[in-house]
Write a protein that binds this DNA or RNA. Structure first.
Lengths: 256, 256
DNA sequence: CACAAAATCTCACATTATGAAAAAAGAGGT
DNA sequence: ACCTCTTTTTTCATAATGTGAGATTTTGTG
């Protein structure tokens, strides 16, 4: 689950390389990555990596475990993060809604956001039952089109953009259960007709989901709220009910 | 409330300059900052700023309001942020504790962390009464020594480091009510004796606070939990009770 | 519409980053 | 304790990269 591939850029090689390294470190997780790993994965010269990483550590954008010499994201990054995320951003605008949805249903709720060809989990509230999800916990990525929140966003983009994204993600769908380009297009059609996205345990056996995009009138969806629940708990009308709950919260969020 | 002054660094000028700009943008808040502002405040050449900012926007580390041409923190930053913050980091380890403290008392709780000569608010739960705080909301800074959480951390550093920090912050204390170097030293002494930090409305009239550092045995405090409450609500023994609540939660956090 | 201010682009220049290679510091293994 | 292999850190000649004054374009304003 890479943060993302490196996009092209405009005139600062060192920064491009820095971003490549930051992405790798961000994916390095708990244990962190060694210089050698980072050099290998980035394809950059070891000395260059070393210089960049050292500077980043100096600025606390990265932290280094001096014992094991591994790099992970640093304190300044966390600060930039809380400022970027809380702020007037989507995360803070959805905090209450997420908690309320969780409370009213007892099920796990997610806030997903669109990022290039992927969707990221920006926030979640765990339900009474622990359910496995494809994004894992907060910060996890999934190709756009995988999972209810993700499909919900994709479904309400305009067709050109959908095509573009689906084509860009083609090779990646195969690694998910029951997922093909056709299936994604089918799900999009269903979602548009129904108004909300539904997953009845197709992606992960036994795990269902409902998703609805957050979009201002006339704008493209940039985020979505979704539920994840056990198929065993499904009762007639849950999807409709959950869809309505999501709609209610999202209307309030968008209305602000 | 600057993120921080630029520390010296080791061998990548462009990155140093980038961090200067990122700090400025991070402080730019909701409205964001224009190229001209950023160039002026950073002291960098306009063209250089422009190039760096463009590249950062290309990588979505920054976002630019195309209408008003202002820069603010971008989506990738938010993602790095959630990964840095959630992760095994202090924020996720304190989430439950913060909520529980809030629930058991009804008062506002804060998670503060040490960052250079400052303390940052990394997380908070708002209490029943809206109380004004010096850090404002999440992401806000305050010099180490200002406020109960901040004093709690400072008090349990070793004396050399305390001195160093107090001296570094000397010029900044004057802008807070009733605060001088001597007062800070007094508060440190009180805190060490008492075991937890207390503010009885000295900094902001009518607003009291209790703070306790999060520290593993033998290590320096890197963070603190604190309460903020209205002086009007003070009853005999609240400070002791709140101190005990904080201790209980922190013991559990440290014990993991 | 004209004027001013800000943003963006250009390009000759040299400062800065580069990376191969050497040196140093760790990690094992016997 | 000693030697060997691996990983990290430093060095330094080279040139590629970033620099910034200024020209140009775009935007905002009276």
């Amino acid at each position: 689950m890479p943060v993302t591939a490196q996009p092209p850029s405009g005139g600062a090689q060192l920064l491009d390389r820095t971003v490549i390294l930051l992405d790798l470190v961000a994916d390095g997780g708990v244990e962190g990555l060694s210089l050698k790993d980072l050099a290998a994965r980035s394809g950059l010269n070891t000395a260059t990596c070393h210089r960049i990483l050292n500077t980043l550590v100096g600025h606390k954008l990265l932290a280094r475990d001096d014992k094991k010499r591994r790099y992970r994201l640093g304190a300044r990054m966390a600060i930039y993060g809380v400022r970027a995320a809380r702020g007037p951003g989507i995360i803070s605008r959805c905090e209450i809604a997420l908690s309320r949805l969780r409370r009213r249903t007892g099920d796990t709720t997610h806030l997903m956001a669109r990022f290039n060809h992927d969707s990221v989990c920006l926030d979640r509230r765990d339900g009474e039952c622990i359910v496995p999800t494809l994004t894992g916990s907060i910060g996890g990525f999934v190709p756009l089109g995988v999972g209810p929140g993700s499909i919900a966003m994709l479904a309400f983009l305009d067709e050109d953009e959908q095509d573009y994204i689906i084509r860009a993600n083609l090779g990646r769908y195969a690694s998910y259960r029951n997922l093909t380009e056709d299936k994604v297009r089918q799900l999009i059609a269903d979602t548009r007709r129904r108004g909300y996205a539904v997953d009845m345990g197709e992606l992960i056996p036994g795990i269902a989901g409902v998703g609805l995009p957050i979009m201002k009138p006339g704008e493209k969806p940039g985020a979505a709220l979704s539920f994840t629940l056990l198929c065993a708990k499904l009762t007639p009308g849950v999807f409709e009910r959950y869809g309505a709950l999501l709609k209610e919260e999202i209307d309030a969020i968008v209305g602000q």
